[in-house]
Amino acid sequence: MKGFILSFRSEFYKSRKTAGFWGAIILPFLISLLALSIFYFKSEKFVAMSGMLLWLQFALVSLGVMGTLLLPIYTIFIAYSVNNVEHKADTWKTLFSLPISRWSVYGAKFAYAVFLVLLCLSLFVLFTIGFGNLLSLLKPELKFNTYHLEWVLTQVYFKLFLSSLGILSIQFLMSLLWSDFLKPMGIGFILTIVGITAASKGWEYAYTLPYAHPMVALSSMFKNKRGPAQDIAIDVFTKDVFVAVAVSVVVFIAGYFIVQRKSVK
């Protein structure tokens, strides 16, 4: 356990100055900032909306892009980024000749990739809520202060987080085994297109495809689909989420056995 914690801390230390880490902060900031400017400069369009609808519209700017293309691509990038640090520096051999178990080194690296995705999505919640409240100060005519979306938004992003785990585990393994950029990126990108197509065409088995999960997760989140309700109820644990988590557990464990047997070049 000590080895795992040391390795995790080291992952943070190594990535502090890389695009992988800063991407997790800058991406939600920029997209939320975009939503903020839309609502600030076009406030007259939104004045008539009720608090709930206003918050939903505001949150949907980020959710829309994240739920479709951006979350899978971002996940692919994170998986690449945490492994590329070692490929580029040729440090796998030193990492695996440390007096730390291979399990800890591998597990900590995966956990750190999960952490980065979680950090990014948490900041989406934080910035959406923060900027929404900022808007209600800057533009009091917008009815942001009449409704609270915090809990719903947290649930939605948590669901998105879980739905990204399948992609993350597959991409993580590919990026670990292949030192080049194109193979994991290319395969990931093609699978993402397939996933998005399947999900957007409403294919009934889309929930079995990890790369379709973020999009399926968004379309399966509302418990009550009939008409606008007074309160929004979010269904976090749908079958697509279970598939995503199951895939990640299986691939993670399989990856460990591959790493255990693999010779370090």
Partner: peptide, 25 residues
Amino acid sequence: SLIEQPAIYAHMSGRENLLNRAMLL
């Protein structure tokens, strides 16, 4: 150990490379 060419993180300073390893060890 030192195997083949040294394995060093290019984006970190010399001291940071050592501090990172010191943390792990």
